[in-house]
Amino acid sequence: MSVFVHQSSRVIIQGFTGQHATFHAEESMENGTNVVGGVTPGKGGQTHLDRPVFDTVSQAVRETGADVSGIFVPPPFAADAIMEALEAGIGVVVVIADGIPVQDMVRVKRYAMDCNAIIIGPNTPGIITPAACKVGIMPSHIYTPGRIGVVSRSGTLNYEAVQQMTELGMGQSTSVGIGGDPVNGTDFVTVLRAFEEDPDTDAVIMIGEIGGPQEVDAAQWAKDNMSKPVVGFVAGVSAPPGRRMGHAGAIISGQADTANAKMDLMEELGVHVVRNPALIGETANRVFS
């Protein structure tokens, strides 16, 4: 079945007619994603990439039956766009933007409490169920269909892990980028729960980084609730405290935020921890076979 996005997902793109959105929507469509239309306020009624353009998300949902939205609008407008998608009843909202003010996301999360939706991101490469549905900016060609779920905060480190898997013949059920921001839509626990419930996922690779408690929370959840094995890595062993390492959320604010502290705890909680990022694929192969 895969998680969150599937062959049957009907995808719209917010900010559809923009340059990046166009490029990535086209790439997704070539790789099997069912993009049913898009939204650019003021351009409703036009056609773009042979798909209808709407002024509002609710119009798009009404006309196309869309249930997934990829948000490609710039950071200052992203919070508004997310809430528009939630209000229109979209079930899975994928937010690519890197640089949304944190307090905007605090309000978005409050708004989302009343909606039964999944927000992926922000600051994520997106989500892909290989050969079925991709909403995001990752290169489709490195992913292959398979039975391992991948979830990560970083984009390029996700690619790195997937490449290592591919070289060893392991494919992915779904790969989810939860994003590098401190306040994000979906945490590791939510994704682990989805993978645990997915009959087409046998095992999970979880890739975290310095900052925040969510990797350890996820390991605790997995210990209490999961039957499937989890391989984990946390980036930033060599990062200095108090500095933001590229991602807004990748900052060591206290001892518990460090990569080693998190990996030690994850190990205690039963996660198969990899200490060398070059060996994520190899470790997964050993543990899962």
Partner: peptide, 15 residues
């Protein structure tokens, strides 16, 4: 390229 891979690269050197 990429913050996560940049950290992982540093980690790999440290490893």
């Amino acid at each position: 390229n990429g913050a996560g891979l940049a950290m992982a690269t540093m980690d790999s050197i440290s490893f």
